[in-house]
Design a protein around this nucleic acid. Structure first.
Lengths: 346, 346
DNA sequence: GTGAAAGCGCTAACAT
DNA sequence: ATGTTAGCGCTTTCAC
């Protein structure tokens, strides 16, 4: 192995100054003679010094690490735990979250620890992890409306920010999308292009985002005289989109417009439509939601309601960062506006 | 805020014992009277004590954290960094890696820090992170053959394990697949079902896995008398698969079998074939590689060469774990065998 | 502007 | 089996 790593002491000796001075130089504290700064910097590179993060954390009470938690609800079996991670990461949505989070953290030399909290034990582990000071706070992305983790975190007084408003009120900051407006945009677009037999495939109604998108959509439809919009509930996956469309097609063969609550399902829907010989968008127009990579991968490319996930995730990281630094003390919410992106499918 | 967190000292006082005894109970060191253990445990829960990880790490020189690094090669621009994370996570392959890694780490109360190293600075950041003792070691998944990170890590004497054999020899452990055997399995299957006009879409030839899969495939074809197999290079994405198949179809309209170097491309290939009115597998048989979620999502479901990614990732984590604990000192390689999974596409 | 010294909370070697 | 004690390497008053 390599010999013992150099410490502040070593650098100080090498530079002929005290530990305190070296520490000041490293941490960019002013009031250090420029000449000495140079000497110290030289000594640092000569010794190949790297500050010990544990020692630093012990006194600063900060780790520059945050937990990025993907949280479910149920009491899932051990078997399914792996599946949970795989499933979550397979969704292009999550990649955008990570991207946005890292975009904020990296320039600040902060790092995300990936955690999955789909069981009672796993949730406890998250709380323990934070209570031990292994991370300074948590960014929580819930996949289920009645996720108990936010309340657990809030109860323990741990810094945390949520992606999406919690279903039960909890004293935590969050970022969210104006999902209702998104549903409205979709409805207006379909109606605007002349669709009259419109159906919709919602997300799991246990997820509040699904409900909101649906509510906004239905609301707008109702205002335009469409009292009834056939609905099938999907699961935010390609497969569930296919199944839903198959079902809808059987009951409503004259459909000419579909609103899917996310792009993955819209992709499945387009696939089924094509298999049944319906042209998209000529016979049936399809509008998705998210503007994820699936929207571009889809044939035809999806017209969709864009959710600025990267920006939202970055804002989430910023909120947590501010809370950790004590800059922000009150729970804050930031709501982003959706935007219609018109491509070929509608 | 909440009041100062309780320390070992507080628990010790509460239990009427010394700090050392409490420490022993917490760390499960034997030689502690069962009765006292009980007293201590009670004091712990009464005080709501959680050990301070920084203090612990300072003395144990271990963080119970490993860096999970996705590493590229180039000097990518800042703009593209976000895209890198998004792109990487969009690939179902990565979700399986995470799943396997977490599967090993979690039961050991270890945690992965997610890092992306697609620029010179980012790679430096990884090295610094490890040198500071913020993580005990690194699990590296390279997306490019001439990734400089492994050499950097090895040079710094930092514990690290790679997914896939490095292109230049480096003194690090790695896990890998017998890609050549995988290519062979694909060729044998296509030939076995009677295909005679076989083409192939490889991955980026800068990636050694691509080369190996191709070599095994070509080798087997050659042994069976097929001297020439038309080849188009793809990029492991659905789109690149579509483009490649379009090209191949133009030059070889009589094609009756395709070997794609991954499932994503196979998916694109199936899509193009269907659009051109070719039935899969009746007119053209398609074999993919990986057995990722894309294989099941594909229509028809893909016959594919399974790569046990979760197992490989778990093994990678285990190797690193052993290296960190000092159980293993020599670089070790573990090569997994591919397996043909027959579904509908071939 | 710089140094001396006091901890941060824990583990582990040693003493008992 | 339990207690005492010496650090781990750093930041941060507090003097100067």
């Amino acid at each position: 192995m390599s010999r013992q790593a150099p410490t502040l002491e070593d650098v100080a000796r090498e530079a002929g100054v005290s530990r305190a001075t070296v520490s000041r130089v490293i941490n960019g504290v002013r009031n250090v003679d420029p000449a000495i700064q140079e000497t110290v910097r030289l000594a640092i590179s000569r010794t190949g010094y790297a500050p010990n993060q544990a020692a630093r954390s012990l006194v600063t009470r900060r780790t520059e690490t945050v937990a990025l938690v993907v949280s479910g609800a149920g009491g899932v079996s051990d078997e399914e735990q792996n599946a949970f991670a795989t499933r979550v990461l397979a969704d292009p949505f999550f990649g955008r979250v990570v991207s946005g989070v890292v975009g904020h953290l990296r320039p600040r030399s902060m790092h995300p620890v990936l955690m999955f909290a789909e069981t009672v034990e796993a949730r406890e582990a998250v709380v323990t992890y934070l209570r031990q000071g292994s991370a300074d706070g948590a960014l929580v992305v819930s996949t289920h409306a009645d996720d108990p983790l936010p309340a657990l975190l809030a109860g323990a007084g741990l810094p945390a920010v949520l992606f999406a408003r919690p279903s039960r009120p909890v004293a935590l900051s969050y970022v969210d999308l104006a999902h209702r407006d998104g549903g409205r945009l979709a409805a207006e677009h379909l109606l605007g292009r002349g669709c009259r037999r419109i159906v919709t495939v919602s997300g799991p109604l246990a997820v509040s985002a699904s409900q909101e998108r649906l509510a906004g959509f239905r609301d707008t439809m109702a205002r335009r005289g469409h009292a009834y919009v056939p609905l099938v509930q999907g699961g935010f996956t390609v497969d569930s989109g296919m199944a839903a469309m198959t079902e809808l097609l059987a009951e409503h063969p004259d459909v000419d417009g579909v609103f899917a609550a996310n792009d993955l399902m819209a992709q499945g829907i387009c696939q089924v439509l094509r298999e049944r010989g319906r042209r998209v968008p000529d016979d049936v127009a399809v509008v998705g939601f998210d503007d994820s990579s699936a929207a571009l991968a889809c044939r035809p490319p999806l017209t969709t309601v864009r959710q600025p996930v990267e920006d939202m995730a970055a804002a989430m990281a910023r909120l947590l960062d501010e809370q950790i630094r004590g800059v922000r003390t009150e729970p804050t919410s930031i709501i982003f506006d959706p935007e219609l992106v018109v491509r070929a499918s509608a």
